[in-house]
Amino acid sequence: METSQIIIQILNGISYGLLLFLLAAGLSLIFGLMNVINLAHGSYYMLGAYLGLVIIRHTGSFFLALGGAALLMSLIGIIMESLFLRSLYKRELDQVLLTFGFAYIFMDIARWLWGGTPRSLPKPLFLDNSINILGEAFPIYRLVMIITGLTIALALWILLEKTRTGIIIRAGVNDKEMVTAMGINIKLYFTGIFALGAFLAAFGGVIGGPIIGTYPGLDFEILVLALAVVVVGGLGTLKGPFWGSILIGFIETFGKAFFPNYALVTIYVAMALILIFKPTGLLGKEESS
């Protein structure tokens, strides 16, 4: 394989990885704060893509679709958390089952509204171009995906590390009860982090739409990938899903390029190996002793 192709595979891996990061970050933070694996997280991604498609059709604006779909889905996240999950407070297993139920409902709604045919989101016209990397064409859109993903990762890092809200969220990951005893209404943060997770997932759905498209079933496919990311990277942090996403993105793209016959299993092999040797994930939240 030539250098140019390797560079392109690396860029593909990074852009795919950062797309997964948009999902995995929310999944990881929700788990860290609430001990709930949100199995409807893939649905946020898929519905985000569909909503983006609808908005593009009506307005013609990709950026309106990006913001609109993400905001609408964060609203759905808020409703889901405050009306349903909250009534099962501290019953984490029941909450996980509830999110699973929601995932099925969302899938049926998508099938009912948009049918079973896979659809693709149109790229913004000015990004529908390629640049030349050592003689190989590389789509500008993917480059923009990388920049967007990195910007969001940076913004999330600032939110978590440099603001009081972020300090409270990290404290909540350590010890929720103590956070309440400090006079902080942690339930507000639960809702907020759920809204943020839904926002990022739907944002990812629209960003990934021109490349992956959207179809019923994508919700669970992407959920499994995001779960692989958090298993590999570790839960409850931002660093974990970030490096986990990049790693899974690489394994996925390089696996397809080098061992096409095993493309379906490469990720799971990596996941199993990491679970055997480092059960908390590469950068996971340590078990409290």
């Binding site: 300090i167 990290r170 404290a171 990951v173 350590n174 010890d175 009860e177 103590m178 309440t180 005893a181 400090m182 006079g183 902080i184 209404n185 942690i186 409290s288």
Partner: peptide, 24 residues
């Protein structure tokens, strides 16, 4: 009342085992 409201009224807790937020 929920704990956070009681705390906001002016009661603070120094818990057994200190319970420092480890990642802060």
């Amino acid at each position: 009342l929920p704990a956070y409201q009681i705390a906001q009224m002016g009661i603070a807790l120094v818990p057994q085992g200190r319970r420092i937020f480890r990642s802060l």
